[in-house]
């Protein structure tokens, strides 16, 4: 058993090495597929982070007059959370005071004027959008007549940023959709091209397969070295595409920093902190692609 494994492995490796130029085409195709996939993932991530960052930038807050009952506030909180699909956090007088006291842009002398015994700070709802789209609905809810008497102040700077938000929103959606469609298309194309390339490589070796059968090679001796070659191709493709993505990321990172520095997106460090997952996915898809294509291609040649 061990002898067999050793011989099969040696066959796979030496075949891979001897046919390296033939394998090169398949490796390059796998590399291209994986790289494209990687680029789409990065783009989606970038788009996501951009819209996340934007959401953080938008503050929407409703402050209530002291005459507003807790029920009124709770009503609005419920309306916002359920209907508008946003997150409304209740801020009590104490919370407001704590916030106020912790602000560094206010002088201590001013801070001393407001204490828990003398606290004019209003209760409020701080609103965060789970989706940028939902910001539009907040206005409708807050500006209902039943709430008007109790509202002390309503800040919604999403109005000011509406154009930007709309744009980012549309951009994000488009990028995500495009990435999904193109990834699928590219994988299908890659499967066909890899299949053809591997088939050509194997066709040129059909004599070898014939000889193997002739001298009584069992299935495992004929097939497994080919699978091994296929998975080696996949591994090489994964390694190459990793290098390309890594290099590209460094380059893109420096550019993106200067364009969208305000949004605080750190692509490179995100890449770095997910490096293990990225390697695993690249290797996994690469090996799968290489092995499956090889398995499919040798089918018709290894009929015993």
């Amino acid at each position: 058993m061990f002898t067999r494994l050793r011989r099969i492995a040696r066959l796979g490796f030496t075949n891979f090495w001897r046919n390296r130029w033939m394998s090169m085409a398949a490796i390059l195709i796998i590399t291209m597929t994986l790289t494209t996939m990687g680029i789409f993932v990065v783009l989606s991530y970038f788009a996501n982070s951009a819209s996340e960052a934007l959401k953080d930038k938008v503050t929407v807050q409703v402050d209530f007059t002291d005459s507003a009952s807790e029920e009124i506030i709770q009503d609005m909180q419920r309306d916002l959370s359920s209907e508008a699909g946003v997150l409304a956090t209740y801020i009590s007088k104490e919370d407001a005071l704590a916030d106020f006291q912790s602000r560094s842009d206010i002088k201590q002398s001013t801070k001393d004027l407001i204490t828990s015994n003398n606290n004019p700070l209003p209760r409020g709802l701080r609103i965060r959008a789970t989706e940028l789209d939902n910001l539009n609905k907040i206005d409708e809810i807050v500006k209902q007549n039943k709430y008007q008497p109790y509202i002390y102040n309503f800040t919604n700077d999403s109005e000011d940023n509406k154009l930007l938000i709309d744009r980012v929103n549309k951009g994000t959606k488009m990028i995500k959709q495009m990435a999904a469609v193109l990834t699928v298309v590219f994988i299908i194309v890659a499967i066909f091209v890899t299949l053809n390339t591997v088939q050509m490589a194997i066709h040129s070796r059909k004599d070898e397969i014939e000889i193997m059968r002739l001298v009584g090679a069992g299935q495992s001796y004929v097939r497994v070295p080919f699978y091994l070659e296929g998975s080696l191709m996949g591994m090489m493709g994964a390694a190459l595409s990793f290098l390309i993505l890594y290099g590209g990321m460094r380059y893109f990172d420096s550019i993106s920093r200067s364009y969208v520095s305000g949004l605080g997106i750190d692509l490179f460090s995100a890449f770095g902190s997910n490096i293990i997952q990225i390697i695993i996915v690249l290797l996994g898809v690469g090996i799968l692609l290489g092995t499956l294509c090889t398995a499919y291609s040798i089918r018709k040649y290894v009929k015993v």
């Binding site: 001897r18 070898e208 014939e210 000889i211 059968r213 002739l214 090679a217 069992g218 299935q219 015993v304």
Partner: peptide, 24 residues
């Protein structure tokens, strides 16, 4: 059966006009 073929073929030696040797 297909899985018995390798064993059968090992008991039958075959040679051909074009030798069918592995060149490398």
């Amino acid at each position: 059966k297909e899985r018995d073929l390798p064993y059968y073929r090992r008991n039958v030696g075959t040679i051909f006009q074009d030798f069918k040797l592995l060149p490398n």
